[in-house]
Amino acid sequence: MDKHKFLELPKSPPVDQVGVGDRINRVQSRSIKKSTKMEGLEMVLSMIDLTTLEGQDTVNKVRQLCAKAKRLHEPYPDLPAVAAVCVYPSMVAVAKKELKNTGINVASVATAFPSGQTLLDIKLDDVRFAVDSGADEIDMVISRGKFLQGEYNYVFDEIAAVKEACNKARLKVILETGEIGNLDSIRKASDIAIYAGADFIKTSTGKIGKAATLPVTCVMLEAIRDYYFKTGTQVGMKPAGGISNAKLALQYLVLVKETLGDAWLDKQWFRFGASSLANDVLKQIAKQKSGSYQSGDYFSID
């Protein structure tokens, strides 16, 4: 958090929702074909945080997920691997062992995911446990209740404290955009998270109805861009939840490319939090290679 410490949190600019919608219409009208489509589909695969975050998660379930992460589709061994596997803290050690020497990171949610409704000390313990268990990345949730009460300093300080507890792990800050209101609030929460030291900002837990959307992501990317213009420091972005098909994922890439530029088109700076996206992308890749539309029976489910 050192580099952020001396920057005063600026007043967030207003956001016009209809204007954002107009922008998204332009993004969605981009036609992604041929080699660009192939390139994009492979890029999407490389950016996926393959995720299981269920009360019913078991050791074996996590192992199976890791198996999928390592070999997405047997017939195409040259495809890139996913970026990370995302699990609860209790499963970090399991995933870490399964993914040893694969280059695939282990991400862990923490800070009383998904509600965040507990004390700061407990949240910090949660983070430290995940990091000590080997997590490369921590996905924290902000205190939406505090945010909605207007306690922005609390939210800021909490993120800064979690960042410190992360040590070398990269911190993704989940805003849970579906709970914090309109695009103006989302912009404000993005700024708080970025200035408090987030390495990534992330839309959603995936645990409520409203998950990632293109307009929400657009606003968060604008916050990242404004910060970059001001400081020259890159911050990553992770839309999560609701992105289950390849076409939509490619539109996210267009949005990233046109808002932030090619430097962000890398798993270092952009991720998809998704569980079923990978197979749809694989189907599209198979379609591109074979020319035939595909059936789910030919793509492994884990």
């Binding site: 036609s31 074909k33 080699s35 660009t36 489509k37 970059y228 020259g232 890439l253 490319k257 430097a263």
Partner: peptide
């Protein structure tokens, strides 16, 4: 716009 901006990532193919 960003540093180490590699040229030619995800350039849109013709879609006539």
């Amino acid at each position: 716009m960003a540093k180490d901006n590699k040229k030619g990532i995800f350039e849109y193919s013709a879609a006539p």
